[in-house]
Design a protein around this nucleic acid. Structure first.
Length: 165
DNA sequence: TACTGGATTCACT
DNA sequence: GTGAATCCAGTAA
């Protein structure tokens, strides 16, 4: 069981999003395997488009947990990436009961604002248990208002916990 | 200070 | 397929 350190998140966001598939998240005494991720770079559909009080984590850190509230009700779990640039990877789904969506997985795993800004390896840990992902599907995501293909989404094919797309 | 709308989810039609 | 729930960051004034 190899623990992922900050260096894992130092470079290419898209590559990190892909490599995170199959890895284990450990938080609040629960463990779950990541089955769907989404890479965010500095584009118009991302918080990284503009540096603000909320999004500055994506600019100033890598290998940290970035949690924010959407629609007033759901938290989304991200990991900041790229030592010398801006980016983050959204964890969309994990292999755990009722965790097939970014809002649901935060609820079930007990992830909230108290995790925001913490370094990976403290409150939340990541492990590589040697699991080999058989087949990775990729898909571009449509920008919210821009109608552009912006981010890349990765998920493990044929997994029943993969969220809808 | 006030308004707007979102990296979602779920119930309902 | 559509709309409501819900709250706070971002923005405009």
């Amino acid at each position: 069981m190899l623990e992922l350190k900050q260096d894992f998140f130092a470079e290419n966001t898209v590559g990190i999003a892909r490599d995170l598939l199959g890895k284990i998240i450990e938080v609040n005494g629960k463990r779950a395997r990541i089955v769907e991720t989404e890479a965010y770079k500095q584009d118009k559909a991302s918080h990284a488009y503009k540096k603000t009080e909320r999004s500055k984590l994506m600019f100033d850190t890598y290998g940290h947990v970035y949690v924010y509230l959407v629609y007033g009700m759901y938290y989304c779990l991200n990991f900041t990436t790229e030592k010398d640039s801006v980016g983050a990877v959204l964890i969309r789904a994990v292999e755990y009961e009722n965790c097939n969506g970014p809002g649901k997985l935060c609820k079930v795993l007990g992830i909230d604002k108290t995790h925001n800004g913490t370094k990976i390896g403290t409150k939340l840990k990541l492990f590589d248990d040697g699991y080999k992902v058989k087949k990775i599907k990729t898909s571009s995501r449509i920008g919210i208002k821009e109608g552009l293909h912006l981010q890349w989404r990765f998920y493990i094919d044929g997994n029943e916990f993969v969220s809808r797309f």
